[in-house]
Design a protein around this nucleic acid. Sequence first.
DNA 1: CCGTATCCTGTCCGATACTG
DNA 2: CAGTATCGGACAGGATACGG
Lengths: 143, 143
Amino acid sequence: MSKGSGSAMRAENVADGAPDTVDPAVEALVQDIIGKVADRWTMLVLEALEEHGTLRFTQLGRIVSGISQKMLTQTVRRMEEDGLVTRTVHPVIPPHVDYALTPLGSSLSEAFCGVWVWAEKHRDEIEQARRRFSEASGKPRPA
Amino acid sequence: MSKGSGSAMRAENVADGAPDTVDPAVEALVQDIIGKVADRWTMLVLEALEEHGTLRFTQLGRIVSGISQKMLTQTVRRMEEDGLVTRTVHPVIPPHVDYALTPLGSSLSEAFCGVWVWAEKHRDEIEQARRRFSEASGKPRPA
DNA sequence: CCGTATCCTGTCCGATACTG
DNA sequence: CAGTATCGGACAGGATACGG
């Protein structure tokens, strides 16, 4: 999933009228971002921080119930790397680390909210479609 | 995304220490939908159909370059199951199958556009953040 | 041309144990 | 409390070959 995002290729000038010309670099980056954000844990951490503001490691782990330390660390690190969250270490005993969304992280949360709203709005249609599909295929309902 | 998001498996509930903005059940379903829809191939197929309209199996496979037949079939099947695309079989020889977006699929594409725009708009910030992170961590370029 | 079935590999993720 | 390291199971997904 980690594709060559290091490319300095710039093609923001999509001033043409052709809608079918999607820049490969942009497309790659978008896929990369989506891939990360759509991750089960990343999404939940994003939400948790959007809701509660600053949180500690353990707090985060409690809110995102079910996540392992490994995944929490990994998720949070990647989000930090992408500039979505800030990681503040207080050098005291016992250790104390705070996590918070950056403006970039907040804006992503907001942007992704559109898809969230869509899913919520159309979940009935989706379930209907699934049922219709199961009916037509003669297959039993998958879980 | 990753593997586990097959269906609404989130039976685990938080001890309600903090008020959630959304219903847990709805959240689970939305996560499920997001998980499927945000899939790398699903996204590309969605885009391809949004751009080109109706497409045949092989056409689709050519546009979404790099996808295997297995994944293409699987992706398209799931999208059909969720009511995002229509699958029209022309019983001729040789076989001829057309795929097209449903209104639901189009609306999803539109909703996803927000994230797409976000990624495009902020890709510089993200790359900067990554560079800064690499610098601070003393890590070499991750390919 | 379209789709399925089989094999095989890479990777994700949870559990556990240990350090500062 | 916060994080790292390692092991092992499970599954996604690519390649291939074959059926309709």
